[in-house]
Design a protein around this nucleic acid. Structure first.
Lengths: 249, 249
DNA sequence: GTAATAGTGTCTCTGAGACAATATGAT
DNA sequence: ATCATATTGTCTCAGAGACACTATTAC
């Protein structure tokens, strides 16, 4: 049986004059792309049907090899290459590195490391055939099994999302540029897995407005009956704000 | 000119039957080992005089190559191998992964990545000839120049130490198992680079005691004249506690 | 009008910031 | 007693938790 690397068609380059150590080793960048599905009222994780061995045909995290050639100038470039590829192909409202794991067992081919990222998509999007949205919770707690140690990676990313949401505006990244206070309450409650009082969220939005991260639009959104919702607008879409207190629990 | 890897004496292993991509690539684990020097009243960073090229003879962060062979079973093992080596050789009161950088330029030999860690030593220790304690601040802001991108790595670790110290008990790791409230006040003020009120620290220590992380010993320490300091004892030396509020600013 | 949800007001409680008041050792 | 520092007490203030109350739309 022969393993092939995903999207790899090069001869191993060697720096001339530099006798380098060569060994079976893979370093990948893997993305956990998250999305708030309003229809299902839950967070979704982007998975990709693998084309190459190992685990061809299985759903797994989108990833690229970074030590395969000289295509990227940096890890950031590798992340952008992956984002722009057909494995992802979505605009990211947020992306941050979470950690790196590496051991001799996680990939059947060889010793390998993965540097993994939390990414958030805010817009409703079309996926390709080989892509799918899966329940983040189900993947994180092992209800949906992924190859390699991808379940562990997803669990670590979910934990980062949770802990950072206790004291930052991160969850608002799921809502895009314009949203309402009730929507903010919903997404915070979803991410923190408990009801969050609307008054607490309103105070935090007020704080964000004072800090210049947010502005009232004067426009209204219509929810499910009842009074319409006033909307606010993110002024610094790519930034998150850190509050000086956590939500308790 | 020929470059040699640090402590490398192996033939590149290949998994038989698996045609693997081979390319000039290095993945290292690098440690930022910190220490509170009471004599100088500042935080120190452990540096190592490099034996091998590139930058032989220069002071740099202690590190090991992880894709050089099959000695380690995981990144954690690589960290432990580095810790136990003569590059470090110290007991660590705390250690956590901070991030991974990688690009084509940071190492003159080839494309390389570094997964770097924040580590804390609490005990007064003896260093070997090739080791030294340097001012953390001076290294982080470039007053002391290091090879590779080690200045940036140190700055990132210092930033992590700072931000995590706003809402956790992390700085207490510098003090060992038994310490006093005034000592805690000193280390928090040092790490946060501003005076922290002793009353705030006392309340946090009280919180830690309630949570079972801490106990009063009944013993006393003598500072510089004045009333002796009551000491407390860490009950969970390897754990940090997260407070639900940040220090302001 | 009623139903349904949005938005406001107010109270409690915790913990940081500030600083005064008291305690405990060395000399 | 005096000095120097440790420890305690008290006040203010910001913001989370809780919940009652008012406002705005659709019907």
């Amino acid at each position: 049986m022969t393993y092939l690397l995903d999207s790899l068609d090069y001869a191993p380059p060697l720096l001339e004059g530099h006798p380098m150590p060569l060994s079976a080793y893979l370093h990948t960048v893997d993305l956990c792309v998250l999305f708030y599905c309003r229809a299902d009222g839950e967070l979704k994780l982007l998975l990709n049907k693998r084309e190459a061995e190992p685990f061809a045909g299985h759903w797994a995290l989108p990833g690229v090899v970074v030590n395969g050639g000289v295509q990227d100038l940096s890890l950031k470039d590798a992340v952008e290459r992956l984002r722009a590829s057909d494995k992802v192909g979505l605009a990211l409202a947020w992306s941050e590195q979470v950690g790196t794991v590496g051991d001799a067992f996680r990939d059947p081919r060889c010793w390998s490391s993965s540097t993994y990222y939390l990414a958030i998509v805010s817009d409703e999007v079309e996926l390709a055939e080989h892509q799918g949205w899966f329940s983040l919770t189900a993947v994180a707690d092992g209800g949906i099994k992924l190859p390699f140690d991808h379940n562990n990676i997803v669990a670590a990313v979910k934990e980062r999302l949770f802990s950072k949401s206790l004291y930052s505006s991160l969850p608002l990244m799921f809502l895009g540029d314009e949203f309402s206070a009730p929507q903010a309450t919903t997404i915070f409650s979803l991410v923190l897995e408990r009801p969050v009082l609307k008054t607490s969220i309103r105070q935090r939005l007020l704080k964000l407005a004072e800090a210049g991260y947010l502005r009232e639009t004067g426009r209204k959104k219509h929810g499910e009956g009842g009074r319409p919702q006033a909307t606010v607008e993110m002024l610094r879409p790519a930034e998150i704000y850190f509050f000086d207190r956590s939500f308790a629990d």
